[in-house]
């Protein structure tokens, strides 16, 4: 545990984001071509960074069990594939996931603080988080109060994150900014700075319930916030783009971007994650295409 409590007054003034510049730089990441052995290595890395996610009102215990099995057995037809990093579920599903994954090293991430809207009393949010941790969650994905943030109550948002981090203790906290509701890259940058200084171990783009979600422009802006924080303090913060990354190509472009902005140290699932539900299958199909030389069919990969 860190000794001193984070203070809102210590959040630095966020720099303005040059939107046109961001778009041009991001466009350049997308022109990189990754082939052959590097592609295989990249795809394998993507698999190991996935937080396999199901966050639906219709989630049943068996659906969660099934997803947990998939998390540990991505494609048994081919040996030597990694497992995903974590599964991401609602708090009520944490005990089920815990039981299903008791023999594996896959982490259990639980969303909390009245995900996805975050529109609940503060006490409810704290209880939500405590429940998830007591049920065995290894990581907490909280949402910020976007309403308060947009109303200018930045200190409120900061305090909320700090309080949830206190409940989390040593469990890692991912803070979801829901960038699709923040409207501008300047606001995304400001929210990132607030989250980082309030104690976030990871900052995460989206809930996956709102479009647009993890665009590369938004991820770039958040990566820059992490970079600046690291340059200033020497502390690493993780990044998790979530929502809308469903193809291998896009995932690889994201890795290229992380490598260039933050460097190789971030290229592991300790510091970088993809929040996704359908990405895994596309990566698997691309991986098997690379291995066999044949274009693959979804018929030969499990649904979830």
């Amino acid at each position: 545990m860190t000794a001193q409590k984070p203070l809102f007054s210590q959040v630095p003034i966020s720099p303005c984001v040059d939107k046109v510049g961001v778009e041009e730089r991001v466009a350049r990441f997308q022109t990189r071509s990754i082939k052959g052995a590097s592609k295989l290595q990249g795809l394998s890395m993507v698999l190991s960074m996935i937080d396999l996610t199901t966050l639906e009102g219709k989630d049943t215990p068996n659906k969660v069990k099934q997803m947990c099995y998939k998390a540990a057995h991505l494609h048994d037809a081919y040996a030597g594939l990694p497992t995903v990093a974590a599964v991401c579920v609602y708090p009520s599903m944490v005990p089920i996931a815990k039981e299903a994954l008791k023999d594996s090293t896959i982490k259990i991430a639980s969303v909390s603080t009245a995900f996805p809207s975050g529109q609940a009393p503060f006490d409810v949010k704290k209880m939500d988080t405590k429940f998830a941790i007591e049920a065995g969650a290894d990581e907490i994905d909280m949402v910020i109060s976007r309403g308060k943030f947009l109303a200018g109550e930045h200190a409120f948002v900061f305090d909320e994150i700090a309080a949830i981090k206190e409940i989390c203790g040593t469990k890692r906290l991912k803070v979801i900014l829901e960038t699709g509701e923040l409207a501008t890259l300047d606001q995304v940058r400001h929210a990132s700075d607030i989250a980082i200084h309030a104690g976030a171990d990871f900052i995460k783009t989206s809930t996956g319930k709102i479009q647009p979600a993890a665009t590369m422009q938004v991820t770039y802006t958040m990566l820059m916030a992490i970079r600046d924080h690291f340059d200033r303090t020497g502390k690493m913060v993780g990044m998790k783009p979530a929502g809308g990354i469903s193809t291998s190509k896009l995932a690889l472009h994201n890795l290229v971007m992380v490598n260039e902005i933050l460097g190789e140290a971030w290229l592991s699932n300790e510091w970088f994650r993809f929040g996704a539900s359908s990405l895994a299958n596309d990566v698997l199909m691309q991986y098997m295409k690379q291995v066999t030389g044949k274009y693959q069919s979804a018929d030969y990969f499990t649904l979830d």
Binding site: G293, K294, Y295, Q296, S297, A298, D299
Partner: peptide, 8 residues
């Protein structure tokens, strides 16, 4: 050949 070996 590409079409013939395509799994889909």
């Amino acid at each position: 050949p590409t079409l013939a070996e395509h799994m889909d």
